[in-house]
Simulated assay, not measured.
Amino acid sequence: MKTKTSAPVKAKKPAKAQPPAKKQSKQSQLIDLLKKKTGTTIEEMMILTGWQAHTVRGIISGALKKRLGLNVVSIAGASGTRTYRITEVKTS
């Protein structure tokens, strides 16, 4: 006949010194990328987020410009590439 054994006792977890770092949202990662002095391209933003080009452009115009009121400028380069960056907001 088999005898019952008690379940193993789990050790208590030690207290954490710091809470785990909060993961940045894709939108906040885009904002950080756009704040660079050199700016960024649609292709770089697509790689960062995994989004398609039309989604990146939609976030720029909808969320960043309209909802958050950021001044995102687009600069056409000599090689036909377009660079986007956030500039200082002009106050009236």
Rank of each mutant, 00 (worst) to 15 (best):
K2Q: 10
K2I: 10
T3C: 09
T3P: 08
T3G: 13
K4V: 11
T5R: 14
T5C: 08
T5M: 09
S6F: 14
S6K: 15
S6E: 15
A7K: 14
A7T: 11
P8V: 07
P8R: 07
V9D: 01
V9L: 11
V9M: 06
V9Q: 09
K10Q: 14
K10W: 05
A11I: 11
A11M: 13
K12C: 09
K13Y: 09
P14K: 09
A15N: 08
K16F: 08
K16E: 10
A17E: 13
A17S: 10
Q18C: 07
P19N: 12
P19V: 08
P19E: 13
P20F: 06
A21L: 12
A21V: 13
K22E: 13
K22C: 03
K22P: 10
K23Y: 07
K23I: 10
S25L: 02
S25D: 03
S25A: 04
S28M: 10
L30Q: 06
L30T: 05
L33W: 00
L33N: 03
L33P: 02
L34Q: 01
K35L: 11
K35Q: 12
K35F: 06
K36G: 04
K37W: 04
T38D: 13
T38F: 04
G39S: 05
T40M: 00
T40Q: 04
T41C: 02
T41R: 02
I42R: 06
I42D: 06
E43C: 02
E43V: 10
E43W: 02
E44N: 08
E44P: 02
E44Y: 01
E44W: 01
M45A: 14
M45T: 06
I47T: 06
T49H: 00
G50P: 05
W51L: 11
W51P: 00
W51R: 10
Q52P: 02
Q52G: 09
Q52E: 13
A53S: 15
A53G: 10
T55F: 08
T55Q: 14
R57C: 03
R57Y: 06
R57N: 05
R57T: 02
G58F: 06
G58R: 06
G58M: 03
G58L: 04
I59G: 00
I60F: 05
S61P: 01
S61V: 03
G62Q: 04
A63R: 11
A63I: 09
A63Q: 14
L64G: 00
K65L: 00
K66V: 06
K66M: 03
R67C: 04
R67Y: 04
R67A: 07
L68P: 01
L68C: 01
G69P: 01
N71R: 07
V72I: 09
V72C: 05
V73W: 01
V73A: 00
S74C: 08
S74A: 12
I75R: 12
A76N: 11
G77S: 10
A78Q: 15
S79R: 15
S79H: 15
S79K: 15
S79M: 12
G80V: 05
G80K: 04
G80Q: 04
R82H: 08
R82Q: 13
R82A: 11
R82E: 14
T83K: 09
T83M: 03
R85C: 09
R85Y: 06
I86F: 03
V89A: 12
T91I: 03
T91M: 05
S92F: 10
